[in-house]
């Protein structure tokens, strides 16, 4: 499974999302390839992604996609991430 974390720069917030998503997936016993990316590289990075993690600000810019777009409010709240990832994967 492939998951892409998207932010504007592809270095700060998406990096944190990637790290915490990996932690949560491990806790849930799930395997996935999680990539941090920015809007500019979204098309190539997310072409085969099942899930896109991002902030509400980027949903419109992400536009049409086959992936499940999950909006995260608190990037450090692993319970929120866990809940939303489980819902999307379940």
């Amino acid at each position: 499974m492939k998951i892409v974390a998207i932010c504007g720069a592809g270095i700060g917030s998406s990096g944190i999302l990637k790290v915490n998503a990996e932690r949560v997936l491990k806790r849930l016993g799930l395997e996935a390839d999680v990539t941090a990316a920015h809007l500019g590289s979204l098309l190539t990075d997310s072409a085969d992604a099942q899930i896109i993690l991002t902030s509400a600000e980027f949903v419109d810019a992400i536009g049409k996609t086959f992936a499940d777009v999950i909006v995260i409010e608190n990037y450090f709240d692993t319970d929120e991430l866990s809940r939303k990832l489980e819902a999307a994967l379940g």
């Binding site: 932010c7 504007g8 720069a9 270095i11 700060g12 944190i16 902030s55 608190n74 450090f76």
Partner: peptide, 23 residues
């Protein structure tokens, strides 16, 4: 400029902003 362009997404948790731009 990142925030002007993309909105306040740098506020990644309650009370905390992670201001940054690209290298």
């Amino acid at each position: 400029r990142m925030i002007d362009e993309h909105g306040p997404y740098v506020v990644i948790a309650p009370g905390l902003a992670l201001a940054h731009a690209r290298p």
